[in-house]
């Protein structure tokens, strides 16, 4: 089972480039990516069991907490830094975004869109949303930041990040009409503005 955003992210990554996947989980995306095209990649993950899964897959994985920043990585040392459905689990949102664009010449950020109509409806009816893209109860979710596509665009602008491309998905399909209303997953391709 390939996650809906894998193909969309992979499209933005050129072959024979250096890729860093932050919050790489069990390595599914890097495994998928390396089967699609030749890239040189590392994952970063904090969880023991997931680090183990990456090692079992033969991936390069660095065990580290992203909250501490990316001190192990040099400026512009990767062609693409991927932060796939991880941004919403990090407390220090601005810090990690600054770090991501410092280390990556380009970066891809994806996150569940809290602004999807079903989520709005749920809150309107008095309950926190539980859906395919937000599959947790409020009391057991690993997500510590909830945001919408519009929120991300605003923060990117205030941090001086340039959005090169974006793709808002729902059930694996791109949403072009009112994406912040009909899209459940936001993907943004960004870089530092002064670039």
């Amino acid at each position: 089972m390939v996650r809906a955003d894998f193909a969309a992210i992979a499209k933005w990554i050129s072959p024979n480039t250096q890729v860093l996947d932050l919050g790489c989980g069990d390595g599914s995306f890097l495994d998928y990516l390396q089967k699609q095209k030749p890239v040189h990649a590392y994952g970063v993950e904090i969880d023991d069991a997931r680090v183990l899964s990456c090692v079992q897959k033969g991936l390069n994985v660095i065990q580290q907490n992203l909250e501490g920043g990316l001190a192990l990585f040099e400026n512009d040392s990767f062609d693409t830094v991927v932060l796939s459905q991880t941004l919403q689990t990090i407390h220090q949102t601005e810090k990690i975004l600054r770090e991501v664009v410092r280390v990556g010449k380009e970066s891809v950020i994806s996150f569940p869109n809290f602004g999807h109509w079903s989520h709005r409806l749920s809150v309107g009816l008095g309950h926190m949303p539980v859906s395919k893209s937000l599959p947790y109860q409020w009391y057991n979710t690993p997500n510590v930041r909830v945001l919408t596509v519009a929120d991300f665009e605003k923060l990117a602008s205030s941090l001086g990040l340039k959005i090169i491309d974006q793709c808002i998905l729902h059930e694996g399909r791109e949403v072009t009409l009112l994406p912040n209303f009909f899209g459940s997953l936001g993907l943004f391709r960004i870089r530092r503005a002064e670039f």
Binding site: V51, L59, L72, S77
Partner: peptide
């Protein structure tokens, strides 16, 4: 690990 990463050598690190 940092030096190996800087050189783009193959490395995994577990703490």
């Amino acid at each position: 690990v940092q030096s190996l990463l800087s050189n783009k050598s193959e490395v995994s690190y577990a703490e």
